[in-house]
Each structure stands twice: as structure tokens, then as C-alpha cells.
């Protein structure tokens, strides 16, 4: 597993997040506030995230665990399956999810953000920590790492793991303002 700075168990999480890995499985709660046809909409649900080097699979579920949509993104294409509707395919997920769900799931960005990493303006690399919690990404998302999982509670005093992440995008051009709030599940004990 990733080598992480040693820290006494029980001490509040500090120091930067663990090194980035392009293969990871995560799950959590997701809240999306967006505007569709002029009115304020709000999705509240769960998501399951399976990421490998070349692919990201995202399942969106209702709070009580019913699958709402299943998204797959590879460098070549994005696919979205929603309920019993026919499978949709597009070159990228932004256009596809905006069209099908009414909000854009920034999958490529989230591959980094969910682990506490982001690419800011001018390609500057950001690595979150409880002491360094906000960044504006190159494509205009304002990220705020609001809370952290106490890694020592997971039995290993390792690097802090993001828990609540707020991502906000202002309205620019024809893109509407949007807020995605993610709360990642506690790491398996």
C-alpha cells in the first residue's frame, strides 16, 4: 500500500493525501444542485466509483439503493444507461450526461479530485491536505475539501482521506451554475 508519513494514531489527520493511484474503488453520497430549463433542480443519491488506468465506471443510485444510471468513460467514448432506456453513447461524458441527466458529471476531473488532487490554472498541480483545502481547477471548478476521514480510525495512521468534497462551477457562457457535493464512505475498517 502507499507509503505514507507516520503519524500517531488518533491525532487529527494532517499532512497531504496519499499518492494518487489510477486504479481505485470508492463509494459515497452525491448531491447535485443544477438548473434545468430555467428551474433549480436537486439530485440526491449515492454513487459507486470504479476507476482503472483506461476506464471509469460510475453507478448513480437513489438514496434507498436503486440504480438510477450507469456511466462508463474511456478515452475514446462515454456511455450512459438510464433505467430501461436504450444505451446512449457519445464522445465525451460532459455532453452525454448534460443531455441525459440535465447535469454534467465531470468524470475526468473527479478521477483526481476524489483522491485530493486537482490541476489548477497553468497546469499547476494541487495536492489537498487538511491545511490546504481549496483550489480552482483549470476548467473552472472551485473545490473545497470540507472534511476528512480520520485514517487512524481505520486502524492505520496513514495519510488523511477526503470525506466531504464540494465542487462548484459558476455560470459561464451557456453553462449553468452547478454544485456537486460528495461525501465519501468511511474507508473499510
Amino acid at each position: 500500500c502507499a507509503s505514507a508519513p507516520e503519524r500517531p494514531a488518533g491525532a487529527p489527520p494532517s499532512g497531504p493525501v496519499a499518492p494518487y493511484t489510477d486504479t481505485i474503488e470508492l463509494a459515497g453520497k452525491i448531491n447535485v444542485a443544477y438548473t434545468k430549463d430555467g428551474n433549480q433542480e436537486h439530485l440526491i443519491g449515492r454513487f459507486e466509483w470504479r476507476q482503472s488506468a483506461q476506464r471509469t465506471d460510475v453507478t448513480i443510485l437513489s438514496p434507498l439503493g436503486q440504480t438510477v444510471a450507469y456511466i462508463t468513460v474511456t478515452p475514446q467514448q462515454a456511455t450512459l444507461q438510464e433505467g430501461s432506456k436504450p444505451l446512449r453513447t457519445a464522445e465525451n461524458i460532459d455532453a452525454l450526461s448534460a443531455q441525459a441527466l440535465g447535469w454534467t458529471l465531470p468524470v475526468s476531473g473527479m478521477r483526481e479530485w476524489l483522491q485530493g488532487y486537482a490541476t489548477a490554472a497553468h497546469g499547476k498541480h494541487f495536492r489537498a491536505s487538511p491545511q490546504d483545502t481549496t483550489v480552482t481547477t483549470a476548467d473552472g471548478w472551485r473545490l473545497n475539501y470540507v472534511s476528512w476521514h480520520d485514517a487512524s480510525a481505520a486502524g492505520e495512521p496513514g495519510a488523511p482521506k477526503p470525506k466531504r468534497i464540494d465542487a462548484e462551477r459558476g455560470a459561464t457562457g451557456q453553462i449553468d451554475a452547478m454544485t456537486i457535493q460528495v461525501v465519501l464512505d468511511a474507508p473499510a475498517q
Binding site: 453520497k29 448531491n31 440526491i44 438514496p63 472534511s147 470525506k163 466531504r164 457535493q181 461525501v183
Partner: peptide, 9 residues
């Protein structure tokens, strides 16, 4: 009512 303590919402 869906109460989410983490989001205080």
C-alpha cells in the same frame, strides 16, 4: 425528509 448530517442539509 432526507437528513444528511455531513452536508447539514
Amino acid at each position: 425528509y432526507i437528513y444528511d448530517k455531513d452536508l447539514n442539509q
